[in-house]
C-alpha cells in the first residue's frame, strides 16, 4: 500500500494557481500521510499558507485512500471550485482526474515509487523507484532529521 511521495516546493505549487480561481484541497490519509505529503496536518498547513498568500481555498477535505474511486463518493465540490489540489500520490491524482473531469487537477506531490512504512524511522522507505529516482532507494521519506519531504538517511 505504501506509495512514497515528496512535496513539490510550495512556490512551484502557487506558480500553478491564480488568486481568482476557487481551490479545493483533497488530501489522502493513507500513504501520503505517512510521507507527510497528505493527511490532515499537511492539508491544514497547505490551506493556511494558501489563504495567507491570498488564494481562495473554497473547501478542504481528507479522504481515507485516494486510490479507491468510491472514496470520492462523498466528496461534493461547490460550484465555485475551479481547481483541485490533490495532496496524494499519483494514484490519487489519477483518480481525481477521473472523478472531477470538469475541474483542473494539480498535485502538491511527486511520486517516487513504492516502499514500506517503518515507524521507527518515522517514514516510508523507498524500495521500488520510478524512473529518475533510483538514487533514492533505501532513503526515508520524510527526512526526520530536518523535517523536509526530501529523503532521509539510508537504512
Amino acid at each position: 500500500m505504501v506509495s512514497v511521495s515528496r512535496a513539490i516546493p510550495y512556490q512551484e505549487i502557487v506558480n500553478n494557481l491564480n488568486k481568482e480561481e476557487g481551490v479545493a484541497i483533497i488530501s489522502c490519509n493513507a500513504c501520503a500521510n505517512y510521507c507527510r505529503t497528505g493527511g490532515r496536518r499537511a492539508m491544514t498547513n497547505m490551506s493556511s499558507d494558501l489563504e495567507a498568500d491570498g488564494f481562495n481555498v473554497v473547501i478542504s477535505k481528507v479522504i481515507p485512500k485516494a486510490c479507491i474511486l468510491t472514496n470520492f463518493d462523498n466528496v461534493s465540490l461547490p460550484d465555485d471550485v475551479d481547481t483541485v489540489l490533490m495532496m496524494a500520490c499519483v494514484s490519487g491524482l489519477r483518480a481525481a482526474n477521473r472523478v472531477f473531469s470538469d475541474k483542473r487537477i494539480i498535485s502538491s506531490n511527486e511520486t517516487l515509487g513504492i516502499g514500506y512504512y517503518d515507524s521507527s524511522k518515522r517514514g516510508s522507505v523507498l524500495v521500488s523507484p520510478y524512473s529518475g529516482y533510483q538514487d533514492k532507494v533505501g532513503k526515508v521519506f520524510p527526512n526526520r532529521n530536518n523535517g523536509s519531504s526530501e529523503g532521509g538517511e539510508n537504512e
Partner: peptide, 21 residues
C-alpha cells in the same frame, strides 16, 4: 512483482495506471 501503482475502480477492479518502466 509490483507492476506499478493503480486504483480500485467503482467495480472493485484494480486498474494499473502508473506502471514501472
Amino acid at each position: 512483482r509490483t507492476a506499478g501503482l493503480g486504483m480500485l475502480d467503482k467495480n472493485g477492479v484494480c486498474i494499473l495506471t502508473d506502471p514501472f518502466e
